[in-house]
Amino acid sequence: MDQTRIAVVTGASSGIGAATARSLAHEGYDVICAARRTDRIEALATEIGGRAVACDVTDPDSVRELAAGVGGVLHLLVNNAGGAFGSDPVESAEPSDWRAMYDVNVIGVLQVTQSLLPALRESGDGVIVNVGSTAGRIAYEGGGGYTAAKHGTQVLTETLRLELCGEPIRVTEIAPGMVRTDEFSLVRFGGDQDKADSVYAGVPDPLVAEDIADAIAWVATRPSHVNIDELVIRPRAQAAQHKVHRV
């Protein structure tokens, strides 16, 4: 890169977000690591030579502080903060879990994108990468709230691309399948390690965070005229949401 390009990664305290921050730093980006857990992002920023900004994407004031910390120019925004809470069927699901999932996976993406669009425009060559999910493309039992939220992520991304057509900003969704990280399933199942482990039981070589980070870095470093609309990534063992090879 001829100049130092600036990137923001939300949800950078662990998993895909932390791996993406490392990958982008390797590509030469000045990475702003944004998340709620300041101790983690400060350690990560020190490791990669980036910057840490505390941010809760569901809090408008916090998002405004992130935008202030970024400044007037931004080249890459990775909306990675998200999550799944609960796996109950629709009949017995907690509405509060659904609200929380919509808040972080859709409203959070909306708020961060709105706040940082002026800086992305100012760069003259901006990229927005929204981390969605294969859950944003199909329904499955026990996943109603999460699939609804991730469908929202997908449609938000598609709409934004239409609305920004003609501007110097590219818009991409990365949609991972089974990615084994330290926290995603554990959070979804309320800290039940056995349930979290059962998701990946017998699956040979599920994806890991670094696989998705590698894809995000690839998308972000394409020539300016190349937009990768969406990238669906699954492990070889997963042919579809309901078709997983286990040994």
Rank of each mutant, 00 (worst) to 15 (best):
15 G>C: 09
109 V>S: 06
162 L>V: 14
41 I>L: 07
29 Y>W: 06
42 E>W: 02
209 A>K: 00
171 V>M: 10
247 V>N: 11
204 P>K: 01
20 T>S: 12
171 V>R: 02
106 V>A: 00
82 G>W: 00
152 G>C: 04
234 R>G: 09
135 A>F: 08
193 Q>G: 10
182 D>K: 08
174 I>S: 01
207 L>R: 01
167 E>S: 15
124 G>H: 05
242 H>Y: 13
210 E>I: 05
106 V>D: 00
140 Y>H: 11
13 S>W: 03
185 S>R: 08
24 L>Q: 03
241 Q>A: 15
225 H>P: 03
144 G>L: 05
100 A>N: 13
96 S>M: 11
118 P>E: 07
144 G>D: 07
125 D>I: 08
243 K>T: 15
11 G>W: 02
91 E>P: 01
247 V>P: 06
107 I>H: 12
201 A>D: 12
58 T>E: 14
233 I>Q: 05
128 I>K: 03
89 P>H: 10
123 S>Q: 00
203 V>R: 02
43 A>K: 04
16 I>N: 01
35 A>M: 03
197 D>P: 04
132 G>M: 02
220 A>V: 06
61 D>L: 14
79 N>F: 14
75 H>F: 06
186 L>M: 07
207 L>S: 09
227 N>H: 04
101 M>N: 06
53 V>P: 08
207 L>T: 05
125 D>A: 15
11 G>L: 08
214 D>H: 12
112 V>E: 08
131 V>W: 03
8 V>W: 03
238 Q>T: 05
168 P>H: 04
95 P>Y: 04
136 G>Q: 01
208 V>K: 06
24 L>A: 10
87 S>G: 14
173 E>L: 12
208 V>C: 11
224 S>T: 14
78 V>A: 07
237 A>V: 07
62 S>H: 02
143 G>F: 02
230 E>T: 11
155 V>D: 14
213 A>Y: 06
136 G>V: 00
72 G>S: 15
121 R>T: 08
90 V>D: 09
227 N>C: 13
212 I>H: 09
48 I>C: 10
245 H>N: 09
